[in-house]
C-alpha cells in the first residue's frame, strides 16, 4: 500500500527527511514507520518515527503504539477547529500509557492562515511547547523534529519508565551472552494528527 501523503504528519515527515523519506507501512498495526539517523551530543542514534496512518479513525490507538515511545508530537490543522478540539482526547490517552514523556503540540499549515499571533490555550493548559509550522513552506519543520529528538534522548537518559526497565531486564536476560554493539536506539513516537488531515 502506498503511504497516504495527504495527511499532515506524513507531509511533515516528508519535509524533514527529504531524500531519506522512505515510509514503511506496517499493516499489522495500521501505522507507518520512518527510520532516521541523527547525531545528538556527538553520538549517532537511530530514531524511529511512528505515524498513525489513519488508525485514529477507530477513535483510540492500539496500546502497542505507545510502547517505548520517548516523545510525542501532536499535530493539529489550524484550518480545522475539530483537529484542535480532538487534542484533549488524544492527550488523555497518551498520558494513560506514557505519563511522563515529552510532548510537543504542533499548529500546522500556518502558510495559509495568519494564526501565529494567536494563543492556543490547550498547549498552555498542559504546559506543553507549541510550534507553529508549515509542511508546505518548511517553516520550523527541521527545528520541530530536532527538538523532539533531543527531548526524546534526554527523557531516555534521565527518566527511564518502570515498564521500560522491566522490559530491558527481560531483554538482557535473553541476550545475556550476546555482545551489543549496535547504536543506541531511540523511538520517538510521533502521534499523528488527531485526524487523518
Amino acid at each position: 500500500m502506498l503511504p497516504d501523503l495527504a495527511c499532515s504528519p506524513c507531509r511533515l515527515m516528508e519535509r524533514f527527511l527529504m531524500d531519506g523519506f522512505r515510509p514503511q507501512q506496517l499493516s499489522t498495526y495500521a501505522l507507518t514507520l520512518y527510520k532516521h539517523t541523527a547525531t545528538v551530543g556527538g553520538k549517532t542514534i537511530l530514531v524511529d518515527f511512528w505515524d498513525t496512518a489513519g488508525q485514529e479513525r477507530f477513535q483510540s490507538m492500539h496500546a502497542s503504539y505507545y510502547h517505548k515511545a520517548h516523545a510525542c508530537i501532536m499535530v493539529f490543522d489550524v484550518q480545522r477547529r475539530i483537529t484542535y478540539k480532538n487534542l484533549s482526547t488524544w492527550y488523555a490517552e497518551l498520558r494513560e500509557y506514557r505519563p511522563k514523556i515529552p510532548c510537543i503540540v504542533v499548529a500546522n499549515k500556518i502558510d495559509d492562515i495568519k494564526v501565529t499571533q494567536k494563543s492556543f490555550n490547550f498547549a498552555k493548559k498542559f504546559s506543553l511547547p507549541l510550534y507553529f509550522v508549515s509542511a508546505a513552506d518548511g517553516t520550523n519543520v527541521v527545528k520541530l523534529f530536532s527538538d523532539a529528538i533531543q527531548l526524546a534522548v534526554n527523557y531516555k537518559q534521565t527518566s527511564p519508565d518502570f515498564m521500560d526497565e522491566v522490559l530491558q531486564e527481560l531483554e538482557n536476560f535473553k541476550l545475556e551472552e550476546k555482545e551489543e554493539n549496535v547504536p543506541d536506539q531511540e523511538q520517538s513516537g510521533s502521534i499523528g494528527s488527531p485526524s487523518p488531515s
Partner: peptide
Amino acid sequence: DEQVLSCGWD
C-alpha cells in the same frame, strides 16, 4: 507575548 488574540477555539 505577542499573541494578544485568542484563537477563538478555546
